[in-house]
Design a protein around this nucleic acid. Structure first.
Lengths: 136, 136
DNA sequence: GAAAACTCTATTAAATTAGTAGGGTAATAA
DNA sequence: TTATTACCCTACTAATTTAATAGAGTTTTC
């Protein structure tokens, strides 16, 4: 299941991408328009700023804005920052790999075999979608 | 993230599918070989029996066995029973559909648009894999 | 210098997951 | 028929994660 954090983060990014100009948008505006708890959104936008997706401007007239154009922002990167691993099990994760403590051999593990395919298919979707592609 | 329930359920099904004959296999054997808590596995196998994947035989020499051949068991069905929805958000789920309370319009929702593709790609993988395909 | 807006830390409530405990019931072989 | 084996079922619980909430602090701009 997609976490609310990811859902809200995606919606906020899409909202920013849909802006006609590059002017900073206030948290309160995004929170209201997208029906998100403002405080929660605050922490999400903060993490998107720290990971290089967003810039922020303080003071009156401040807010958040995209640092790159929507077509430069890949869903793969966004998902990894917001949701974490794309794989459903750590043993098939490219960026968050871990061995399973219960599994003696990955190569003969049926779960591993199936989840590898699921990861690849999801990755395929994320790689083929930028922020521009998902805004209506 | 894949739940342990699903992971263990898949491993147990694969274990049964890999048996040379159709004789019932005891819970304790599967639990030991696959490093699964026996009591937990018990509840998982029970749910697989109730949903028509497994049959069981009581008494001495009893245990669980597959009701269908491995190639007749689609991962789509198994995943839905063990893990629940294949979709990452309820608003794109085929079998567990629900509207989002925060979202005014699915058709213009960027999350919806992306997650629809992710669901379809996952479904594609599950539909193309039977239990036979994932046993080594 | 005051207001607007971002930054950060800590706490918490609810939900889910992954078990654990323990007794009950049914079927089989001897 | 009786002991054993193995499934069946309910209830409880500890740990983890998620989704906030609260509140104080800092920076920038007008």
């Amino acid at each position: 299941m997609l976490s609310k954090k990811t859902k809200y983060g995606l919606k906020a990014l899409a909202y920013l991408a849909a802006q006609p100009d590059k002017k900073p948008v206030q948290i309160s505006e995004i929170a209201e328009k997208e029906n998100i708890s403002q405080k929660f959104l605050e922490s999400i936008l903060l993490s998107l700023r720290k990971t290089g997706f967003l810039g922020s401007k303080k003071g009156k007239g401040g807010g958040y804005y995209l640092l790159r154009t929507p077509e430069e922002i890949s869903m793969t990167d966004v998902m990894r920052v917001l949701e974490g691993p794309i794989a459903m099990v750590p043993c098939v994760s490219l960026n968050f790999y871990e061995t399973c403590d219960d599994c003696p051999d990955e190569n003969t593990c049926s779960v591993h075999k199936l989840m590898l395919q699921v990861r690849d298919s999801a990755l395929d979707v994320y790689r083929n979608n930028t922020l521009k592609d998902i805004i209506s």
